[in-house]
């Protein structure tokens, strides 16, 4: 059986988990085996709806103490649940929670792990999963040698597939160990789509010359419904909050569209964004290295180009 761990934040199922669900559904079909989802904690979503993403069955360990991440607790429960249902493959989303839990689950199941997978396995001769390595500069094909396999699938690399069905939900009663950590304070960034989940991202660099010029970028982001990001020098200078920093030492993202404004495209920045499907670079320096990694480029002054782009987007929206 393929078992997909459905992750939550604030009692809501994450988009990345629906991607993992669709990945699991495709994998179960490929292997010709059953498929189930596993949900921990109390969630507001209707779990039967996971059928729309391919689940036939949903196992639910319903307990409020599981709503926040405790790797020791979660990995113990997921491994025990996987053993209960004889799972041969356990799938995670490679998001913050998944990348923390999956390796511990792999140890507990004596399973080989591919963390950051980018495709379905090749099962013609063994079980070989491709993953991104060297910060997106290469792929490695990894053979999992153990009978049980654990895969954490990269965000935005496998689309959510819609199925016309509903899943049966079954509560799983397994003993819940004591928590290993105690949460004392939570600070959420309100009202924004987390960057790692955003499909459209508008990002600014030093070329914007100062925080007071961010208005044009925010207007563009608003016209698209995009999230905002920035380069390292920008967050280091406190022009923008640190959680917006994308790159090697910041966060790595893979949106459908990444628009880079006034960012030269140093290799460390590219390492955080090179898995984006389409990259647009706006820079007045035609020699900016970012143009080599871009799909579309505009050589021009951001202070003129960006408002013009915003206007063109708004115009195209009213035309529809």
């Amino acid at each position: 059986m393929v078992l997909v761990y459905i992750d939550q934040a604030d009692q809501q199922i994450k988009k990345s988990s629906l991607e993992a669900m669709s990945y699991g559904a495709a994998l179960a079909k490929q292997l010709g085996c059953d498929l189930a989802a596993l949900v921990l904690g109390t969630v507001q979503d209707n779990l039967a709806d996971l059928g729309k993403n391919g689940a036939q069955k949903v196992y639910h360990i319903k307990n409020e103490s599981l709503n926040t991440l405790d790797v020791k607790l979660h990995s113990t429960l997921i491994a025990n649940a996987a053993k209960n249902v004889n799972a041969t493959v356990v799938v995670f989303a490679h998001n913050i929670n998944g990348r923390a839990i999956a390796p511990a689950v792999a140890v507990k199941l004596e399973a080989g792990l591919v963390s950051g997978a980018s495709s379905l396995p090749n099962t013609v001769n063994g079980f070989v999963v491709t993953k991104t390595v060297f910060s997106g500069k290469a792929f490695a094909s990894i053979q999992i040698e153990t009978p049980i396999k654990v895969i954490a699938i990269n965000q935005n690399s496998f689309g959510v597939v819609a199925y016309d069905s509903s899943a049966t939900v079954e509560e799983m009663n397994i003993p819940i160990p004591a928590p290993s950590i105690k949460i004392t304070k939570v600070e959420k960034i309100e009202g924004e789509i987390p960057l790692t989940e955003a499909s459209l991202v508008v990002s600014g660099g030093r070329g914007l010359k100062g925080p007071e010029h961010w208005g044009i970028l925010l207007d563009l982001a608003k016209s698209l419904g995009a999230s905002t990001a920035c380069s390292r020098p920008v967050s280091d200078s406190d022009w923008r909050p640190h959680h917006e920093h994308v790159g090697q030492t910041g966060i790595q993202i893979a949106p459908n569209l990444y628009i880079a404004i006034g960012i030269s495209g140093a290799i460390q920045h590219l390492a955080g964004v090179n898995r984006s499907k389409t990259i647009v670079v706006i820079n007045k320096d035609p020699e900016a290295p970012f143009f080599k990694a871009a799909d579309y480029g505009v050589i021009g002054d951001a202070f003129e180009v960006v408002p013009a782009l915003t206007a063109a987007i708004l115009k195209s929206k009213t035309a529809n």
Binding site: E110, G112, A138, Q143, E145, A294, V298, G300, E304
Partner: peptide
């Protein structure tokens, strides 16, 4: 070991940037 690397691949290079007139 529980896994082994079979091969590496370099991603297909972008076909080249398409430049758009700033105007």
């Amino acid at each position: 070991a529980t896994t082994s690397i079979k091969k590496f691949d370099i991603p297909v290079a972008k076909s080249g940037v398409k430049l758009v007139d700033p105007a």
